[in-house]
Computed example of a mutant assay.
Amino acid sequence: MREAVAAALSRGAREGRSTAVLLVGPERPDGATLDGFDELMRRSVLRDDPVGRIGDEFAAVLQDIRSVDNAEAVARRIAVAGPARIGIAVAAPGEYGADDLLHRAALALQEARSRSDGAPWACYEPDLSASTPLAEELHEAVGKGELRLLYQPIVALPDGELTGVEALVRWAHPERGPLEPDAFVPLAERSGAIGDLGRWVLGRPRPRPRAGSGACRRCS
């Protein structure tokens, strides 16, 4: 998606056109999948406007947007088709780079998620640029020893032989309590903390199965 945004911004700078990014966070019940949401996104934008996925979020790049009102009209179509929160960021020709525009859309999405009433989307405003408290805390969480790594066995059927483990990171937040990955991994990706988080995970000791262990035994 970053490449798609960069290409749209480059074209917009050459042709004197504005570009918008819509970052969309679908609202779904626990356990629901996102199957079909990408098709919903494609039906809501023009045929040539790129649509893609960033983790559990989706993004649309509007390549020839004349005003914020036009971007909001697209956001409205998406929200009507499927419950979602949407962040909107618009760049005039040559105004932002791809990373900056995506970051502004992410801040707008956070603002949209914080609202309890009104439209389910928010447009980027300069006063949203301040770092969120949770993002600042996440940068410090690794050094403070607040992260935990759990391991989920992966077994082969039908004999149940242990073939590996899946690493599951958790954040033992001192005030908010245990946080699942959905609550902080997207934030890590947007705030730049994902590199520190990944290095911490890769640096943990690998679990080894106990002698004679099978699918139902704990990993050491």
Rank of each mutant, 00 (worst) to 15 (best):
L179S: 06
L107F: 02
R66G: 15
T163G: 01
S129P: 00
D117I: 02
T163K: 13
A130G: 13
A112Q: 05
K144I: 00
A89D: 01
I78Q: 01
E166G: 15
L107C: 13
E125Q: 11
L128W: 02
L102M: 15
K144L: 13
A122D: 07
E136N: 08
E111A: 15
G177A: 10
P178S: 10
R148A: 13
L62T: 07
R113C: 06
L128D: 03
R148V: 13
Y124I: 06
V90N: 06
D100N: 05
A71G: 13
L179M: 15
L107P: 00
D64I: 06
G82H: 07
P158M: 14
E95I: 07
D56P: 08
E137L: 11
A81K: 04
E111L: 08
H139P: 00
E57R: 15
P133M: 04
V169P: 10
D117Y: 09
Q110Y: 00
V51S: 06
A167E: 04
Y151R: 05
R77S: 07
L179H: 07
R77E: 08
C123A: 15
G145S: 10
G160F: 09
G94L: 14
V61F: 05
L179F: 04
Y96K: 12
G97I: 07
A106P: 01
D56T: 13
Q110C: 00
T163E: 11
A98F: 04
P181F: 08
V165K: 05
V169H: 12
V61C: 07
A122F: 05
W121L: 02
F184D: 01
H103A: 11
I54R: 08
H139V: 02
V74I: 12
A89W: 01
P126H: 05
G177I: 06
L101V: 03
L168T: 14
G164H: 08
D127N: 05
L150K: 10
E111H: 11
W121D: 00
I88C: 05
V74D: 04
L168H: 11
G82S: 11
K144F: 02
I88Y: 00
I65Q: 10
I54A: 13
L101Y: 09
G177E: 09
D99Q: 12
E136L: 12
V68E: 15
P158I: 11
A141M: 06
V74P: 04
E137A: 14
A119T: 12
L109H: 03
R176T: 08
I54T: 10
A59R: 01
L179D: 02
T132D: 06
G87M: 02
H139F: 12
P158W: 12
R76A: 14
A122K: 03
E111D: 13
E166P: 14
A92L: 15
G177W: 01
D56V: 09
V80K: 10
P133C: 08
A84T: 00
A112K: 09
R113G: 07
W171N: 08
V74T: 13
P181M: 09
I54D: 06
A130D: 12
P126W: 03
A108P: 03
K144C: 07
N70D: 14
I78A: 02
E140K: 13
E146A: 10
A91W: 01
V185P: 05
G143P: 08
D117L: 04
A106S: 14
L150S: 11
R113P: 00
A122S: 14
A98R: 02
H103L: 10
